[in-house]
Write a protein that binds this DNA or RNA. Structure first.
Lengths: 248, 248
DNA sequence: GCCCAACCTTGACCCAGATCAATCGCGCCG
DNA sequence: CGGCGCGATTGATCTGGGTCAAGGTTGGGC
């Protein structure tokens, strides 16, 4: 629960890295000023738990940098990841006082938090925030449904290829690192986290990654650094349309 | 595409069966009047397709009665259900012109449709609709995440028990048919649809239902009529907390 | 009442992925 | 420098659920 206030970046919304993608994307200058008054930053270390399912939650917020996961756990310990939170993604639900899922930082993480009650008041008064939140929630619902197809119907190999595609696509969108030599990115998840994401065991994840490497679909440098020489090949392996465009 | 206007129920929003649960739940009388002007009813027969994924969609709407499903299909024919639409559930996404999923009526179905552009205009002008839609979308996202745990981590037996619990809970909420003799309801889905819901084959669904019957967890009268003598037992089989309350 | 088609059940067999187990490799700390 | 611990890999074996196949049930149409 460290609330470090000596962060290396500005606290000014205007030059926030997620200014135009987060829940505040549509806010006007005066609305941002109000948000500034109810916001605060929190930092978490890789591996740290942000909040436990069932805990009282008196804030909502956005991921500023780093990656967090939403997971559900059964009594006997089986776990399933149900959300992967990237910068600009929103955490928490207005109108709910307890967390519904475990939230864990998988890398070092910075969150921009808003005290819940004032945030709810603002949502009721200014339509821009509610509109943006609706849009983001609909996007997440689409992502969840895509994911349901992966979990319910794809083979282990297709699941891995699907996950790699998603990460590659996101990285390409953010960093435009799609050189002529293929797409290059780092896996932000351990094998175990990937297994929890995909409804597999970590052994199966490891085996399928090895198989994709052996078959030349991907190349590995270390455990985490991945090169995809032919993106359409990867999409084909994922069972998605390999038609292309800039990654469909 | 039959658009029967001789329906057996009133077209007046005030005595609509889903008046207080649908996207219009929070609307005032004057707002309802505006909605009346852009709405129309459509009926579909059991088995009929409401809309195909990718089709142009110039309406959004609510399920008034009956049940519909949202499904995704891969090129090779594997399908996964990604949504089960019950009365009051919303179909379509404001700001999107093509359907993202196949929508199919599994029973006879009545929908209350709104022409998309006027509906979007109304959403921007009256916060009540957008607020309610956000709430409903957040609920659907929670349901989707619950479902992801089912798809990713539960055994076939647990999957069936989970689905039966969900249907039983919904029926109990709607009809309060939880007599002292246990909970009684009809399955609104074929074995095949249940399989698509749960990421199983229809043979496995059939076998697991037989097994639950043999073990006394449920009783069957015909293929579809189900009695659950002990709800907490069923919840236990589903791998959920069997703690109870009126079905947790 | 009979027939047909859609739906469901059950059996036999097989395989993808889980489970159990051993080993590797690398970064960190003493 | 050596040892330790965590993550990852790889192998051997097992099994839940898929696949293929053969009936059984039921309800609607004629």
């Amino acid at each position: 629960m460290l609330t470090d206030r000596s962060l290396s970046f500005s606290h000014d919304c205007e030059d926030c890295p997620i200014r135009h993608r987060a829940v505040c994307a549509r806010c006007e200058a005066d609305e941002l000023e109000r948000l500034e008054q109810i916001k605060y930053y929190r930092k978490f270390q890789a591996g740290q738990t942000v909040i436990w399912s069932g805990d009282r939650m008196d804030f909502v917020g956005s991921v500023v940098s780093g990656i967090a996961t939403l997971t559900q756990t059964m009594e006997d310990g089986r776990t399933q990841m149900v959300g992967l939170l990237l910068p600009s993604d929103f955490v928490g639900r207005p109108g709910r006082s307890a967390a519904a899922y475990d939230v864990t930082a998988t890398t070092d993480l910075v969150m921009c938090c808003f005290r819940k009650t004032p945030f709810e008041d603002m949502m009721n008064q200014t339509p821009h925030i509610a509109q943006r939140l609706l849009e983001m929630t609909l996007d997440e619902l689409d992502a969840a449904r895509e994911w349901m197809l992966v979990l319910g119907r794809k083979t282990a190999r297709e699941k891995i290829a699907s996950l790699l595609s998603i990460i590659a696509r996101r990285d390409a969108a953010a960093n435009a690192q799609s050189t002529t030599l293929g797409v290059v990115f780092d896996l932000p998840l351990t094998r175990e986290a990937m297994a929890d994401y995909l409804g597999l065991t970590l052994e199966t994840v490891s085996r399928q990654i090895s198989a994709l490497r052996k078959d030349g679909v991907i190349a590995l440098d270390g455990k985490r650094h991945v090169t995809v020489p032919d993106m359409s090949r990867l999409l084909e392996e994922a069972g998605d349309d390999a038609d292309g465009g800039v990654f469909a």
